[in-house]
Design a protein around this nucleic acid. Sequence first.
DNA 1: CAGTGGTCTAGACCACTGT
DNA 2: CAGTGGTCTAGACCACTGT
Lengths: 255, 255
Amino acid sequence: MIQPGRTPLHIQLADIIRSQIESGVYNAGDQLPTEMELMKQHELSSSTVRQAVLALVSEGLLYRRAGKGTFVAKRHIGRDLLTFSGFSEEAAARGFRPGARHMTAHWRPADAVAAALNVPTHESIFTIERVRTIDDEVVAVETVSFVAAIGRLMEKLDLADTSFTEILEQQLGVPLARAKQEIRAGIARAKLAKALDVSSGTAVLQIDRTAFDTADRIIYFSSSSYRADRYIYSCWIERNSASIAQPRRLIGRSR
Amino acid sequence: MIQPGRTPLHIQLADIIRSQIESGVYNAGDQLPTEMELMKQHELSSSTVRQAVLALVSEGLLYRRAGKGTFVAKRHIGRDLLTFSGFSEEAAARGFRPGARHMTAHWRPADAVAAALNVPTHESIFTIERVRTIDDEVVAVETVSFVAAIGRLMEKLDLADTSFTEILEQQLGVPLARAKQEIRAGIARAKLAKALDVSSGTAVLQIDRTAFDTADRIIYFSSSSYRADRYIYSCWIERNSASIAQPRRLIGRSR
DNA sequence: CAGTGGTCTAGACCACTGT
DNA sequence: CAGTGGTCTAGACCACTGT
């Protein structure tokens, strides 16, 4: 029952419709009541009904057809998507057991990652290298470089097997907001092949990530190489809704 | 000047504000005119002004603070992101010249892509293969399979050099909504290596895409192999906003 | 306090879909 | 043709921000 109060009416209506879909009152493909019917049922104005329904459309739960009606979408994309998260977080969320081996941590000049971290070349950065495992099988080699301010906090902590994302957010209070990723295909040469336990010349998926906090400061740059036979990067992309953070492709500049 | 016509007024207003931001009339952090001022300036009702401004907010171009005002966002994530788009559309948007070579189109049994298209194995599908170029240099090999209903429409058209995305939407009226992508690293063997003009054993980035319309019907499945030296997949991911379609990673199941 | 965006009402007219 | 969602008007009242 929709009642005036602290919760806006359009949010109450959207919640009602959402729970009706989840509980099976409406199933995939079903037509929802029209705007007019929803107005009468809930004693709301057309604008309020519209606001509620459009919110569910942008969630991907409903779709509308002018002249036809409003329908329950067959797929519920929002439900099975994971946000920007670290290796450990993500593996755990999927029911796998993440792990790390052969970790080394040290200070070194920024050099090659200076541009990615937006610091001078000679500035010291704190770099951690680890071999990442899923259920004790080697999946990736990961190198994470932190800007000096974060590095000074990280080096005092016990970092084995832990999720950097959780440490940053929960122990250090760094509010991670977004990251830019670049995904490439590459070949594992001698050293990398050995670390990944594959033959030299095997394909690897390379993912570079630059992470930003809510104030758009760079927090870390990570570069990971995944075994192509054990890792697939999967994502949904949307058409015509510029509001949504979407993958893009770059044309490489090499000749 | 906003005028009644085929373009809705709220879209006209959003376009005006967007171009004012792009041309520097308003800069990052600047406060925009209030709803009341925009209503007077453009002789529009509050709802119409609101609709335009909210669209720009959801694009990430503006942000609003109750009691304070509407401001130009500092980061314009929406601006440098491309939506789900085809090879041609995207290359053109970046100032490159897309092309296609060696196109073949034929009907064949669904077989291996039956699962991806969600049709029976024996059902006929329409498959198009092309070598894709950017500024006349080979970048990728692309195989697109359409479900029979779409295939029967496609086979009558002139498909050389064209963007399937544009054909689907503009000529066939298919409202593409979203796609699921899987990105892998692979190795170019003899046939693929020859098509891409690289040595056998070179790394390639493989992107499989299943495209859905707004009613969540599968429209096509495409499988592309990109030269690793000429193509990088780039995307932004956000933390803690479940409503946004975001990339996720899958742990591969192979041993 | 005046000014802002957030919510909400009660309509009107339109283009589009399917019978 | 009746019914649908899409657009638009012309207001009202509210909570919140900053002086």
